[in-house]
Amino acid sequence: MMISSCRRAVQHLAFILFTYGGRFGLHFGNALPCFSCPYVTGCGGHCYLMALQSNWWGLQMPLATMMSGLGLQALLLFALFALLVALLGKSWCGWLCPFGLLQDWLTMLRQRLGVPEAQISQAMRDRLRSIKYLLLVYMLALPPLIASAGLHSDFSLPFCQICPAKPLMPLFTFETAHLAINSANAITQTFSILSVAIAALMLVGMFFKERFFCLFCPMLAIIHIFQKIIPLRLKKNPALCLACGNCARACPMTIRRVHEDRADVQDEDCLLCLNCLESCPSDTTLRLDLFGKTLVSSKRRRLIVLWQKTRSARP
């Protein structure tokens, strides 16, 4: 089975489990390192970003509560999140994230329609890269201000309020309430207009550019912080590289680093989708290692099969 087919199967299974799991009595907790949106009724687990911002498990907890034994609960949840990240690393983004699959569906739709992909220059990519860190700071800074500095509580869950997954993911359960403008007060109105606007623009971006939202995703930034301790790593043997550039072209995030002459090719935006590994024509040049042991590596034979399959699928 090809890596891409295997990934698609895992992505769809994860989408069903995370989006509808609650309807079958499944719940994978509040520490998931992917966009399993808590606003989806009957979802099977919650994105950790919500817990991180909340007053129950995260940074909106009053300082006195955090300093008491109860702060330990929040730390334990963070430890569980860190463990999940350490186990699977960036595969959460490339293989398990339901919002990632939504983006892949849009890409498939664009390809079916024959619309070419919009290019983003490397300079622009570098500029956009900082946005996810700004979002991370915004997400981490506001909850303590609500808890301790008297900021209005309608600012709570600041990232969820503008996250495009909030209005878009509930559509898979025919829930349109999060596309509404909430006129309860000026803050809710502003946030809901922002949320709808960001969701609309992201939807367009995700259609024209593969994995467009992942360029701004703060979860990717958090997972990257753990990169040094994650045992699952993408490696390259530069001595065997044919410098064909297939890897960079196949990358949904258009990462150039994988094409460079270095052993550690895992970029901060890498989703570990393994498209690069699958498209590499040189045996064992690119490999996925777990604790230094190779799980899967690039094979010329695999690329030939993939090429034949693609060719036969063409009209």
Binding site: L179, A180, I181, S183, A184, V196, A199, A200, L201
Partner: peptide, 14 residues
């Protein structure tokens, strides 16, 4: 205080 039609119109327009 949810205005779905307004929100959907904004979404579709943008």
């Amino acid at each position: 205080f949810f205005h779905r039609q307004g929100g959907m119109a904004l979404f579709a327009g943008l």
